[in-house]
Amino acid sequence: MKQWHWIVLLGLTALSVIGQFIEHNYWWEAIPGFFAVFGFVGSLVLIFIAKYCANLFIAQKPNYYDALQQDHDTDQEVNTNAH
């Protein structure tokens, strides 16, 4: 990201805030920068909740299901031998 990229993005944001004063349908659309805050907070909330859940138990090694399968296969072999 070069400096002028940031300038363009901030310029567009400024333009959009001006647009809010020209026309709005709902009361929240009149609050300057409402959706900027929504987008920023929303993205961080999504990132942190998703990452938090992933760290709890959702993220696993890619061979998670294969390992289960193999465990079970070896169990069964032991059983058949025992007969």
Partner: peptide, 15 residues
């Protein structure tokens, strides 16, 4: 247009 612009730019900032 306002809604989309602000959402997209600030989502990018968040990332």
């Amino acid at each position: 247009l306002v809604e989309t612009t602000q959402i997209l730019i600030f989502t990018f900032f968040g990332f």
